[in-house]
C-alpha cells in the first residue's frame, strides 16, 4: 500500500490496510528549549503490521525514546499523523489517549514501574481498574496473566520482595492483561543481568509467537537480534529499516 509522506504532512494517507497496527506519517516532535526549538523527530514515517516483532534502535539523543513515547500515546506529536489500529491518535484529547493506553498498549519499562506498595496481583490488576472491570473478574484475569509469566506463587509479594526478572515478568503480565494491540517494551532488559535478560527475551518471544505485536526499544544489538526487523533512528529520522538475521531466516 502506498502511503508515501507528503512533504507538508497534510495529505491524508490511504486508509491503512487491515493488518497494519501502527502507521506514522511524517511525524514531527519539536521541543521548545527556552528560545530555541529542538526537533527530536523530523518526519518519521513507519508502518508496523500485526504480529510483527520490531526493534527500534538508535544512539541516545537519536529520538528513539520520543518515538516510543508517541507510539505509546504518552506524548502527542507536534506535526504529522499517527494511526493506531485504524484510529488517528494524533488528534485525540487527554481522556481518549488514556483510553488508548489502557486498551491498545501494553507497556514494559526499563525500570519496571510497578507500584511499590501493591502486591504483584494488584499491580497486574491496575489496568483493569481503569478499564472499569469489576473486582472479582479483575482478580481472576490478573491471576490468569500471572500464570502466563509463571508467577502465580508470587502473587501476594510486593515488588521489593521480588527479583529484577520477576518484577519485569509482573510488568509483562500487567502489559498483557487488557489484550493490547501492541506490546511496547522500552529497554526491557536494561536493568537485568544477561541470564535474566535472556529469560525475559524468551518470554517476549513466546508472546510474539502467540500472536502479539511486539515493539522493542533498545540500544543493545544482541537484544535487537531477538526481533525480526530493526528500525534505526538517527537525528530524528529513520536511517535504516531492515530485517534482522532472524527475520531473514523466518522469511526464507
Amino acid at each position: 500500500m502506498a502511503t508515501a509522506a507528503s512533504p507538508l504532512g497534510t495529505v491524508p494517507p490511504v486508509l491503512p490496510a487491515t493488518d497494519v497496527v501502527i502507521q506514522t506519517v511524517d511525524l514531527w516532535k519539536i521541543y521548545q528549549m527556552g528560545t530555541e526549538q529542538v526537533a527530536a523527530l523530523r518526519g518519521v514515517s513507519i508502518e508496523i503490521k500485526r504480529n510483527e516483532y520490531v526493534a527500534i534502535m538508535g544512539p541516545s539523543g537519536s529520538g528513539k525514546s520520543t518515538l516510543m513515547n508517541l507510539i505509546g500515546c504518552l506524548d502527542s506529536p507536534t506535526k504529522g499523523q499517527y494511526w493506531l489500529n485504524h484510529q488517528q491518535v494524533s488528534e485525540l484529547d487527554d481522556d481518549a489517549l488514556a483510553h488508548i493506553r489502557n486498551h491498545e498498549i501494553g507497556f514494559v519499562f526499563q525500570t519496571f514501574n510497578l507500584l511499590a506498595r501493591a502486591t504483584a496481583l494488584h499491580n497486574v490488576e491496575l489496568p483493569l481498574i481503569y478499564a472499569g472491570v469489576e473486582s472479582a473478574q479483575r482478580s481472576a484475569r490478573a491471576l490468569e496473566a500471572l500464570k502466563k509469566v509463571d508467577l502465580v506463587d508470587r502473587k501476594d509479594h510486593r515488588p521489593n520482595e521480588l527479583s529484577g526478572g520477576q518484577r519485569q515478568r509482573v510488568a509483562i503480565a500487567r502489559a498483557l492483561i487488557n489484550n493490547p494491540s501492541i506490546l511496547l517494551a522500552d529497554e526491557p532488559t536494561g536493568n537485568l543481568d544477561s541470564t535474566t535478560s535472556n529469560e525475559i527475551m524468551g518470554l517476549m518471544d513466546r508472546l510474539w509467537s502467540q500472536g502479539n505485536t511486539v515493539v522493542l526499544v533498545t540500544h543493545e544489538p544482541d537484544i535487537a537480534e531477538y526481533a525480526h526487523r530493526v528500525i534505526f533512528i538517527r537525528d530524528g529520522q529513520v536511517a535504516r529499516d531492515e530485517p534482522t538475521a532472524r527475520g531473514r531466516k523466518a522469511r526464507v
Binding site: G72, L74, D94, D95, A98, H99, R101, N102, H103, F107, N113, L114, L115, L126, P127, Y130, A131, R174, N178
Partner: peptide, 16 residues
C-alpha cells in the same frame, strides 16, 4: 509523581 505517571500510562484519566 512517579505513581501518577504509572497510573496514567496504564490508562488512568485525569478524573481518575
Amino acid at each position: 509523581t512517579r505513581e501518577v505517571g504509572i497510573r496514567k500510562a496504564l490508562g488512568a484519566r485525569r478524573k481518575d
